[in-house]
């Protein structure tokens, strides 16, 4: 809810509130989210520190947020909001920050693999309507040039009947293409 006595808040925190309804000023820095977060040790700024940086609104801090690893390492496991005493809904806030980070070309280099994987995943869906795992792995691994890691798993997955050689195609692929055109493509290209 906006306060009629205030002018529009153009800080990153203000944008977060406008687009997601999440009000970072509610956070009183107890750190319960960071304590429960399964990947806080992988993050450069644990969730509560990320929020602190948004609270100050200093350009330096906002820049750090958009360029952080943290926003890409979030697994959206929702533990933070499940335990937050002030109900600061961190996951949608992070979703928004990821979008901003990509839009402004500020995504952290360490997140390359994660972004590549997401893109490969969506690419697969866009073409076939469903996930084509074999295609995904080939696509992702060729994008990340990291062929070794999962090639080990593939043959045994195949042997156990878990990998299909050919993709499953849905009938109305035009509809899927149209959905991608009107959403992702529309904004990012």
């Amino acid at each position: 809810m906006s306060n009629p006595h205030h002018t529009e808040d153009n800080s990153l925190a203000g944008k977060v509130q406008k687009h997601t309804g999440v009000k970072v000023s509610r956070c009183y820095q107890c750190g319960k989210c960071s304590a429960g977060c399964p990947v806080s040790s992988d993050m450069d700024f644990p969730p509560s520190l990320l929020i602190r940086k948004l609270q100050t609104g200093f350009p330096k801090h906002e820049e750090e947020v958009l360029r952080s690893k943290s926003i890409w390492f979030c697994l959206t496991c929702e533990m933070c909001i499940a335990r937050c005493p002030m109900e600061v809904d961190i996951p949608p806030m992070i979703d928004y920050l990821r979008g901003e980070s990509m839009r402004l070309n500020k995504a952290n280099p360490a997140a390359k693999n994660i972004i590549r994987f997401h893109k490969a995943f969506l690419n697969s869906i866009q073409k076939t309507g469903r996930l084509y795992e074999m295609g995904l792995i080939v696509d992702y691994k060729s994008r990340s040039l990291n062929m070794v890691q999962d090639v080990v798993l593939a043959p045994s997955m195949f042997a156990k009947g878990k990998l299909k050689i050919l993709p499953e195609l849905i009938k109305d692929r035009k509809n899927i293409k149209q959905i991608f055109q009107k959403t992702l493509k529309n904004k990012h290209k």
């Binding site: 979703d95 990821r98 997401h118 969506l122």
Partner: peptide, 13 residues
């Protein structure tokens, strides 16, 4: 079709 999983909501609401 695929539900979009984590990839979709990480990149586009």
């Amino acid at each position: 079709n695929c539900c979009g999983a984590t990839a979709a909501h990480n990149l586009d609401k």
